[in-house]
Design a protein around this nucleic acid. Structure first.
Lengths: 155, 155
DNA sequence: AATAATTTGTTGCATTTGCAACAATATTAT
DNA sequence: ATAATATTGTTGCAAATGCAACAAATTATT
């Protein structure tokens, strides 16, 4: 696959995506601080994932949030400490696993953070047309799916 | 700016870009290991940047590679230890700064790594058409430029 | 039946990153 | 002239990340 005709890596699509992602992360973290959110962006994304995959086990969650098992476990520790989730033992394919659910408080916090974040983001100037956004979204998904097959994730 | 009509952050364009970037980073690191590169992906990207901005000072470089000044300084320490760059004192706007240049060995390593990486990447299956790639590249640049204005980088 | 391999989660450690504080110097304000 | 502010780079520390090794339990192999 030809990704860059330029001779320099930093002009490649890969690098541009990485840099754009950095801006996304920095902006997200800044907004979370400005809005005095009670959780971090990573914790929020994890909570949001659990809300869409109720009673998921730790390893399956790790695969979704693209973190290794130790990191996933540690985020879940803090989410449980904050009383946003509860974990309980269960089995999956006859294996002992730890599954999790959002608590009432977890749901409330998630909804509130989602609302605040969305309001903030909607107030940003529109630097891409709605059509451009949809186009970008469609092609980035295809690109991501292509990459997925090439990377060994070892989760 | 409306980035997601979905109620969930993890379905937003921001999160998709972040996850795609993770795949890019993991794939890159894996390729660098497989190919037994003498430097890391981050060091490579830094070296590549310096090669395009000869005699740049540390802070200006930090702004380009989107790292803070301490991290940038530390990467430069290792690049200098490996004899890929030399640093020297100079002035910019009457300020004392440290500028840098690629060494002969640095240029050789950069060229070789660029060639090996490109060969590897060209052998990946084509999951996007050339037209799709160009379209994706164009819109991600626009998106990145829009974000840039919203993020305080403090570098 | 005994051993080896696999799955899931945890612990520990080395590396990386982010941020605040500092030193040194130059510019601006009072 | 003196004090305050700004620029550049470094040091140090806390938090996050990545990875190897381990424990416990199940499945597969011999």
């Amino acid at each position: 696959m030809k990704i860059a005709q330029d001779k320099h890596y930093i002009n490649s699509l890969y690098y541009k995506i990485e840099q754009t992602a950095k801006y996304c992360r920095y902006l997200g973290n800044q907004v979370f601080q400005k809005l005095n959110m009670p959780l971090s962006l990573e914790e929020f994304a994890t909570l949001d994932t659990i809300s869409l995959y109720d009673e998921i086990c730790q390893r399956d969650l790790a695969k979704l949030i693209l973190k290794d098992r130790p990191s996933t476990g540690r985020i879940l520790n803090t989410l449980e400490d904050k009383n946003y989730i509860t974990r309980f033992a269960d089995t999956k394919n006859n294996r002992l696993v730890r599954k999790m659910k959002l608590t009432k408080e977890g749901k409330t916090v998630l909804e509130r953070a989602t609302k605040l974040l969305k309001e903030y983001m909607n107030n940003l100037p529109e630097f891409l047309s709605q059509a451009d956004i949809e186009q970008l979204e469609a092609s980035i998904i295809k690109f991501k799916q292509g990459l997925e097959k090439e990377v060994e994730m070892n989760i």
